[in-house]
């Protein structure tokens, strides 16, 4: 369970990026964080990943104040979370298989387990036949699928994605969303930041909407608010 209690983040002492955030995310939820570019979505995610610390307020993960985690235990904390970037961030000199195996090697795992697990995740994201490909031989959608496989290979409790479909067309985005839904269906909490109306409206999940760093809406299941389109 994740909780934000009165969290404010002020950059460079003057710029308030998010303000008075109160947010509770239960295990197993699927939640969209939406809002225009600059609304503070990434800031919220960075706070949760403990990349940055809040200026005020407390963030807890499973009732632990994450800003009280010692520096050398941050790595351990992050193993609870699989992270997906907008720009995929695959290592270019490694094959699809190696990119996924890398994430496993980094935190544990006997070779035997790696050989068993990687093909399973690959088949889940539908890339069994591309294991030996290099990232630059894949389409954007395929690269993002590899990134999802990498994010879930260590069976994290939570998957966080910051604009995972930001670089993809609508059709490909829907494929990515299908996979994330499947990840969520298997019990993983999924938190996804996006400004993509179509996706949000299509999936009808919990939506937390930010505007100028403030939560203006938090609904159980629904779409984007009906503001006129701007982006």
């Amino acid at each position: 369970m994740i909780e934000f209690n009165n969290v404010t983040k002020i950059y460079k002492k003057t710029f308030t990026a998010v303000k008075d955030i109160n947010l509770k995310i239960d295990n197993g939820e699927f939640i969209f964080i939406v809002g225009k570019s600059g609304a503070g979505k990434s800031t919220l995610i960075k706070l949760l990943l403990r990349e940055i610390s809040p200026s005020q307020g407390i963030i807890t993960y499973n009732n632990q104040d994450i800003n009280k985690i010692r520096k050398r235990s941050v790595a351990e904390y992050r193993r609870h979370i699989g992270f997906i970037f907008q720009d995929y961030r695959l290592l270019p000199k490694m094959t699809v298989y190696e990119n996924i195996a890398f994430a496993m090697e980094m935190i544990c795992c006997q070779a035997k387990n790696i050989r068993r697990e990687v093909p399973l995740v690959l088949s889940m994201v539908g890339l069994s036949d591309k294991a030996k490909y290099y990232p630059d031989e894949l389409s954007g959608g395929e690269q993002q699928r590899v990134a999802i496989a990498r994010a879930i290979i260590n069976k994290p409790e939570t998957v966080i994605a910051d604009e995972p479909t930001g670089n993809l067309d609508t059709e490909t985005s829907k494929e990515i969303m299908k996979i994330l839904s499947e990840v969520n269906r298997r019990g993983t909490t999924v938190i996804m930041a996006t400004h993509d109306r179509e996706i949000v409206n299509h999936f009808q999940r919990r939506v937390v909407e930010l505007k100028n760093g403030i939560i203006i809406r938090d609904i159980k299941a629904g779409g984007y608010s009906d503001e006129p389109k701007e982006d």
């Binding site: 790595a75 351990e76 992050r78 961030r89 290592l91 994430a103 090697e105 980094m106 935190i107 990498r150």
Partner: peptide, 17 residues
């Protein structure tokens, strides 16, 4: 840097980083 950053997101052990 890219690789290291990624490793830090993944939660790689200190030894690896």
């Amino acid at each position: 840097q890219r690789e290291i950053e990624l490793m830090q997101y993944i939660g790689a052990t200190n030894g690896y980083v």
